[in-house]
């Protein structure tokens, strides 16, 4: 009896805390949007963050995209050639990348490469009282520190997703056409016939924008909300990576079920 009550109480406390955090994050999101004016009027603040989130993630995105595309090329060819449909390799590679793998894998990589860095940076600024100092200088830390990092992420990630998908298609082409010898013309023309810009590519880009907002918000929120100790910062970074991954996968399911029902 006593054990059951304790268990229930614990579950209740977790749920209440969870709801409270979601509410707090939503309010924080509104604040970030409200204080975004400066990130646009003083564009170099945002450009700096695009450099840190976007440019510095470029290498890992390019390399991963290439490898994912090459694996798709190998595996896809293996299966397709059994049905004599090796020419459809381009379709398989392009559709899987544009619809799912591009946004999801690039999103996960972005969360662990750039999202965690943003959380760490904001968390450390909080721990060393830099955010409070800024606030005391009558400069809003949300406008000066949080919003530019948020927008930097929101702008960088869709571009990284596009680069990832393009590199993936290139990787598939490299394996399929150059190494295995699938007919080049058929590879591209079948791809173009089957991949619709609005339906496949635009929807993939919409996904990437949604993921970008989610990951960037989680990253800045966890940093801003962390317990200002070394341990608190490290926990916040872990939470950023875990929550971002879960958010991406859950949102991907929801978006896919709306976008690709036909």
């Amino acid at each position: 009896m006593n054990g059951a009550t304790t268990l229930l109480r614990r579950i209740g406390a977790r749920v209440v805390e969870g709801v409270w955090r979601v509410g707090f994050a939503a309010r924080f999101f509104m604040l970030v949007l409200l204080y975004s004016g400066q990130s646009l009027t003083r564009i170099h603040l945002t450009i700096r963050e695009i450099y840190f989130s976007g440019v510095l993630s470029l290498l890992i995105i390019v390399v991963s995209g290439l490898f994912v595309g090459m694996v798709l090329g190998l595996q896809g060819y293996e299966t397709l050639q059994r049905y004599g449909a090796a020419e459809s390799l381009g379709v398989l590679v392009a559709l899987s990348l544009a619809r799912e793998l591009g946004p999801v894998v690039a999103g996960l990589l972005f969360a662990s490469r750039a999202g965690s860095a943003v959380t760490a940076e904001i968390g450390l600024m909080k721990t060393t009282e830099q955010l409070k100092a800024m606030d005391m200088m009558a400069v809003s830390p949300i406008a000066r520190v949080v919003a530019p990092r948020f927008w930097g992420g929101v702008i960088s990630m869709p571009l990284l997703v596009a680069i990832f998908s393009a590199m993936g298609v290139f990787g598939g082409w490299l394996i399929g056409v150059v190494f295995i010898g699938v007919d080049e013309g058929a590879f591209w023309s079948q791809m173009q016939a089957a991949v619709d810009f609005r339906y496949d590519i635009a929807n993939g880009m919409i996904k990437s924008v949604v993921f970008a907002v989610a990951v960037s918000l989680i990253a800045v929120f966890e940093g801003y909300d962390c317990t200002p100790t070394a341990e608190g910062v490290s926990r916040a970074i872990t939470r950023t990576v875990v929550s971002s991954a879960l958010a991406i996968l859950a949102l991907d399911f929801v978006l896919t079920s709306f976008m690709f029902r036909g």
């Binding site: 600024m125 060393t128 009282e129 830099q130 409070k132 800024m134």
Partner: peptide
Amino acid sequence: ALRRRMGMLFQFGALFT
């Protein structure tokens, strides 16, 4: 507006790293 006329020195300086 009032804080623009205040200065505060934090315990460990809180310089922007």
